[in-house]
């Protein structure tokens, strides 16, 4: 009885080893972890990309949203999954600030960038029936009533928080930052008048701007941006000093654990390059106000490092960082 049991076990173990050695990646469904909640910008990008990647990989990607902790919950989940390439992280820029904000003790350096899909541009929006018609209007009002106006945010290290910090360092305005579960719920609160202003990715605001429900006061960029036939002035028009932080914006990408086997990485990079360059996906990215990129590997790592150094030091300079970027070897830009 016992010996037959042992034999079965041994056979099982052997066959398991044999299976891993011979099977070509991927031989089963992959799982994709989305850093932000359903309906947010990261979510839509991930769900639009996945079918193209599935076509290239020949296997399904089962997507789940794991929002929370400004992305730390998803990075923690993926870093603790096996490094076999079957668990993909569909994320945004946030983990690059996890160290300085002490949300996690690691950022994207522990992950391999399968593809940086594209970068976005942020706009500062207010409800369309609000009294402010330019960023300067809002900032002046906020200065008159310090700590009265409310800014929608997505938690420390989120896009609204970073843009708010940059604005604060330039203008010294004071607003209350109310955290929501993502850009979507934040925009909902803005539409309901529960917050007064919110910096968001263009994608999350475009349809509402088009419908005339919100107005964009400024684009966080050096040049004006045209949305739905309206020209949105650059932030530097009212505050030229803001220029030192530009260009800056959120980005989206796909990562796996860095210690994933190289051949698996290669398969993933190939598949996601095909997916990210699919015309349908490129159209969707552009429609949502993003600049398609589709870079990976060394090039992507350089992009990530540069972004991290600029942003981490901004937060450090305005006193929003909880730990100095120095501590983690993040160089000054």
């Amino acid at each position: 009885m016992l010996s037959s049991c042992t034999r079965t076990l041994a056979a099982l173990a052997l066959s398991a080893v044999a299976a891993t050695a011979t099977a070509a990646f991927p031989d089963r469904e992959l799982s994709g972890v989305i850093m932000w909640g359903a309906g947010g910008a990261t979510d839509v990008v991930a769900r639009a990309l996945a079918p193209h990647a599935e076509a290239a990989l020949g296997k399904k990607i089962v997507l789940t949203n794991r929002p929370g902790g400004t992305g730390a919950i998803s990075t923690n989940f993926v870093i603790n999954a096996p490094a076999d390439g079957y668990t993909l992280l569909f994320g945004a820029e946030n983990p690059q600030l996890h160290q300085v904000l002490q949300l996690a003790d690691f950022g994207y350096e522990k992950f391999f960038p399968v593809s940086i899909l594209g970068r976005g541009v942020a706009v500062v929006v207010v409800k369309s029936d609000s009294p402010w018609n330019s960023l300067k209007d809002f900032v002046e009002d906020a200065k008159k009533r310090p700590g009265k106006l409310k800014m929608g945010s997505t938690g420390p290290g989120g896009l609204p928080h970073t843009v708010g910090s940059m604005l604060n360092s330039v203008t010294k305005f004071q607003v209350i930052s109310v955290p929501f579960d993502g850009e979507g719920p934040g925009m909902t609160a803005l539409l309901g008048g529960h917050v007064d202003m919110m910096p968001v990715g263009v994608g999350a605001a475009a349809e509402n701007i088009k419908a005339g429900r919100v107005k964009a006061l400024a684009v966080i960029d050096g040049e004006a941006l045209s949305i739905a036939g309206q020209s949105v002035p650059p932030v530097t028009r009212d505050y030229p000093e803001f220029g030192k932080y530009l260009p800056w914006g959120p980005f989206y990408g796909v990562w796996v654990r860095r210690d994933t086997p190289d051949d698996v990485k290669a398969v993933l990079v190939r598949a996601f390059r095909a997916a990210a360059e699919n015309p349908q996906f490129v159209t969707l990215m552009k429609d949502r106000g993003n600049v398609p990129m589709s870079t990976s590997g060394v090039e992507a790592d350089a992009f990530l490092k540069k972004w991290q150094s600029v942003t981490a030091w901004v937060l450090q300079d305005v006193g929003a960082a909880k730990a100095s970027p120095d501590k983690f070897g993040i160089p000054k830009p």
Binding site: R47, E207, K210
Partner: peptide
């Protein structure tokens, strides 16, 4: 979105 629609107030 993936089917090319643009969910939103429009």
């Amino acid at each position: 979105y993936i089917h090319g629609m643009k969910p939103g107030p429009m």
